[in-house]
């Protein structure tokens, strides 16, 4: 069933795959982000409670959701690398880490900028923001661990284990923080008190979600190619590629 994947364990094939996918991912990401953002900013109806400030949702929610799923994707890649001994999977994991960290940063920043007009403070120890902050710490841990290793092969494996430890912890952190939050400040208004969001508000959100996902995939392909070059520096095909790129 997974046979078709096996050729891509070879770095050269993975590199070529990234090159082929890349333009499509970029076009899709730009189109979705443009459509979703313009739709959300200009055409979606106003929220009756929060006015126009709720339009931050169109970047806050996609980045928050995808910051978590990128971490899960990293853990899956690490597991694949561990089970089938694929070096390429570890490289993909490392390629994703900074992208996920940037997504987490965006979710935190937009959360703060949304919180200021809604709660009157830039930072409130709200459950979602707090677990997002801890997620950022987890990303920083993985990136820092990988960065400390001189031997990138070994560093990839070590960072993979850390990503797996983290992913077991992500749900525990999420629920513990949520529970801690209700314990300490049950009275704060949740942003999504009303779970049934109007469809004309939801559609731009879904388009932007797709746009963010495609953006993450596109940047990951670029970073995966970089990672392959770093680790396969002395392979003839990399040398040939570099010499061609230089001219």
């Amino acid at each position: 069933m997974w046979k078709w994947l096996h050729p891509y364990a070879k770095t050269e094939n993975a590199y070529q795959l990234c090159l082929t996918l890349q333009p499509w991912l970029w076009v899709g990401a730009l189109a979705c982000l443009l459509i979703g953002s313009v739709w959300g900013l200009a055409f979606a109806p106003q929220d009756y409670q929060q006015g126009d400030s709720f339009r931050i949702i169109y970047i806050h929610v996609p980045s928050a959701i995808l910051s978590m799923s990128t971490y899960v994707a990293m853990a899956v890649a690490a597991l694949v690398g561990m089970v089938w001994q694929w070096r390429t999977a570890y490289m993909a994991m490392i390629a994703m880490a900074p992208v996920g960290a940037v997504m987490t940063f965006i979710a935190l920043f937009t959360g703060a900028a949304w919180g200021k007009p809604m709660w009157g403070a830039w930072w409130v120890w709200d459950a979602r923001l707090t677990s997002e902050l801890i997620l950022l710490f987890l990303y920083i841990g993985v990136i820092a661990l990988y960065g400390t290793f001189e031997d990138k092969q070994q560093g990839g494996k070590a960072a993979g284990i850390m990503a797996l430890v983290g992913v077991i912890n992500v749900p525990i952190i999420h629920y513990s923080v949520e529970w801690w939050n209700t314990l300490h400040q049950g009275a704060t208004i949740s942003k999504f008190d009303n779970p049934s969001i109007a469809p004309e508000m939801l559609w731009p959100l879904l388009v932007n979600l797709l746009g963010f996902a495609l953006f993450i995939a596109a940047v990951t392909t670029v970073r995966l190619r970089n990672e392959i070059i770093v680790r396969e520096m002395h392979r003839p095909w990399v040398v040939k590629l570099a010499q061609k790129g230089e001219k």
Binding site: G51, I106, T110
Partner: peptide
């Protein structure tokens, strides 16, 4: 609707960070 600073700053920082990346 009076929230220009927050909304536009969020979008600017978001797309700025993505562009930088």
């Amino acid at each position: 609707g009076g929230y220009a600073f927050y909304v536009w700053m969020s979008f600017a920082v978001t797309f700025g960070a993505m562009l930088l990346l």
